[in-house]
Write a protein that binds this DNA or RNA. Structure first.
Lengths: 190, 190
DNA sequence: CGAGCGGTTGAAACACCTCAACATTAGTGG
DNA sequence: CCACTAATGTTGAGGTGTTTCAACCGCTCG
């Protein structure tokens, strides 16, 4: 499934009902390309907003691997990029503070939304609830609320009505220790 | 590089020097197969013990994608499996307690070491230092030490001299909320 | 024999969570 | 269009899991 419109996420659940996102999907993302090789997914793909998907049958992908090695490598690259994002998130979850993790999420989304032309300067639509931000960052929604206030107090971002405005990109990147090389922008630009 | 002997890990660093592992590599693992599509890695591959590697040149992999679509899909599957492990680790880091995370790590290693015949019943060599366990679990080495003592106190594991013995596998899996489906054992058995 | 690494311990600090209440916004049916 | 309800966001107080810092121990290795 290729996400054409809307936001989605890769979510894993614990028996207790706790949920953790491993990646947020934006328009243009192939949300479950890895299911071609895995056959079955180890996680859910959940919609954050209403979504529109294009469906690519696995038989078509199999035919691609038989006849189009170059395209196969490009698609393989896409799944490797998802893994790179998972690793960066693991770094966030394991080693960054709540405020740094949140700053990092806003930086990643700014860069990725710019690629697909969904930003307006340093501002973008941000449809996640605070519960969902918590599920991305491994925090409770209560702490998300307070951390968000802290980012506002530091004049790094403004949030109102499902929209984020980044007031000081460099300072936000600094707070996040954000290094976008894990997004492999150079390969996408080609 | 295919790891033939020894243990290694995928590590990411923060400018502060803090380090987080995203996966532990055991003999048989293709430690950097994703570099074939990414060209450059977003992380380090670090050795935990002295290691022996086999080298596969990227030209050979490219030739594989041109002529051996089935093998290409198998190798693609291997990189998707790494991503599945990253996701499970993200779930651990975001939502599991220290003791549950540690129990989960020991469960994962038991299953993966069994596959390559490196277990002796429910016991296996475990060469990680407590600092490295902390880098896997997003904890300080001090807390690793205390959590390890707690697992011992609960009679779930014994640790001595670089070797782990799991005393109660079912109880350990319960503490970890361990569900091995993310390791895709059924695909490896074929 | 000395140095360094890995492991262990205690005390204090703190980041984040829990629980509970309440405010605000959005959605739905009448 | 209003009334009702549910979902989302906000706040306070208190608790707890994990970190920090510092000291010390035992082992290995040069």
């Amino acid at each position: 499934m290729i996400l054409l419109e809307g936001w989605a996420a890769r979510a894993k659940d614990l028996p207790s009902g706790q949920r953790q996102f491993a990646e947020i999907h934006l328009p243009g993302d192939f949300t479950d390309l890895h299911s071609f090789t895995l056959k079955r997914l180890d996680h859910d793909v959940v919609s954050i907003t209403p979504c529109l998907f294009a469906i690519v049958p696995h038989e078509r992908l199999k035919a691609m691997t038989e006849k189009l090695p170059h395209l196969t490598r490009v698609y393989w690259f896409l799944t490797s990029l998802d893994a790179a994002i998972h690793r960066e998130w693991a770094l966030s979850l394991g080693r960054r503070s709540a405020i740094s993790r949140m700053a990092h999420l806003f930086c990643e989304l700014l860069v990725r939304l710019e690629i697909v032309g969904m930003t307006d300067g340093n501002s973008y639509e941000f449809p996640l609830t605070q519960v969902e931000v918590g599920e991305s960052l491994g925090l409770t929604s209560v702490h998300v609320n307070r951390t968000l206030q802290e980012l506002r107090r530091l004049k790094l971002i403004e949030v109102d009505n499902r929209r984020v405005r980044i007031l000081d990109v460099e300072a936000l990147k600094g707070a996040a220790q954000f290094d976008p090389t894990y997004l492999y922008l150079e390969k996408r630009d080609r």
